[in-house]
Design a protein around this nucleic acid. Structure first.
Length: 275
DNA sequence: ATATGCGGCGAAAAATGA
DNA sequence: TCATTTTTCGCCGCATAT
């Protein structure tokens, strides 16, 4: 398991987080911050750009055990040519890139030392079993972030990281504590809360997958299955991009169900009418 | 085979309480 | 001011979709 070391840098911006107007019970699941509308037009300091999230600009290296090299700026690769349509938001990627860095998490790695490792990163020496893992890792060294937050312009390498970030703007908190009803945006936050506050230890092995929760990013609705979520989105948010992204297979399957259910309803109502 | 999505870990930063 | 809790996010492993 590779060891990583995070180096702290003083935050430059002032936090905009302000959920204290509402009690947790009320902001559970979904809470759209009052200032969101304003935020869209006037992004606060803290939410500005990435720039440096991981590709820290000139942070000091606070000691690197094992002599691994920093994965960030000192050896940062030349900027890759952005792919077409890549990181070019509606208001332009440049705008996002020019914003000052609010927070910096520079991750240093010592690399993985294993015989099975065949693909190693030229920039930080980290090794991976699979080429595709290395390919993805290389994005960490890239200062251009492909996925931009439409609310604040912050960029991410990973779509899921962006999705997760967006919840801080939409206030969607799918993970609810069943003891005190407090809600969290991430499962690990909930689990940490359960452990520290309620002394509830999760019955999962290291890295064991939990039951997947299907979350509607439009309203915070959570369902136990993908089908359940699809049906919800289909009826509540017909224009949602989720529907476009749903796999064709599942969509066709569910559409079939919907249609047959619909036809069943029609024949039922026709029958009732006849009566 | 490759790309994408998601879950999970872990750590920094921020918030909150004593 | 310090300790504790919560929030946020970087990045890796795995599963699934393309």
């Amino acid at each position: 398991m590779p060891k990583v070391f995070l180096v702290k840098r003083r935050s430059l911006g002032v936090s905009v987080r302000s959920w204290d107007e509402l009690p947790d019970e009320k902001r559970a699941d979904t809470y759209i911050p009052v200032g969101l509308g304003r935020l869209l037009h006037d992004p606060p300091e803290d939410c500005r750009s990435d720039g440096g999230s991981s590709s820290g600009s000139g942070s000091s290296n606070a000691g690197e055990p094992g002599g691994a090299e920093s994965s960030s700026s000192p050896h940062a690769p030349e900027r890759e040519t952005p792919e077409p349509g890549d990181a070019e938001g509606p208001d332009g990627h440049l705008a996002a890139k020019q914003r000052p860095v609010a927070r910096s998490k520079i991750k240093f790695t010592t690399g993985t030392c294993s015989d099975s490792v065949v693909h190693s990163c030229d920039l930080c020496g980290k090794g991976f079993r699979l080429q595709r893992m290395l390919n993805r890792h290389l994005k960490c060294h890239n200062q251009v972030k492909r996925h931009l937050c439409t609310f604040c312009g912050k960029g991410f390498n990973d779509t899921f990281d962006l999705k997760r970030h967006v919840r801080t703007h939409t206030g969607i908190r799918p993970y609810k504590c069943n003891v005190c009803n407090k809600a969290f945006t991430q499962r690990c936050s909930l689990e940490s809360h359960l452990k520290k506050i309620h002394g509830v230890q999760q019955q999962y092995a290291y890295k064991q997958r939990r039951d997947k929760l299907y979350v509607c990013e439009d309203c915070g609705y959570t369902g136990p299955t993908q089908e359940d979520l699809y049906l919800h989105v289909n009826s509540a948010h017909p224009g949602s991009s989720f529907l476009k992204k749903t796999s064709k297979k599942l969509a066709a399957l569910l559409q079939g169900k919907l249609t047959s259910a619909h036809q069943e309803n029609i024949s039922l109502s026709e029958e009732e009418e006849r009566k």
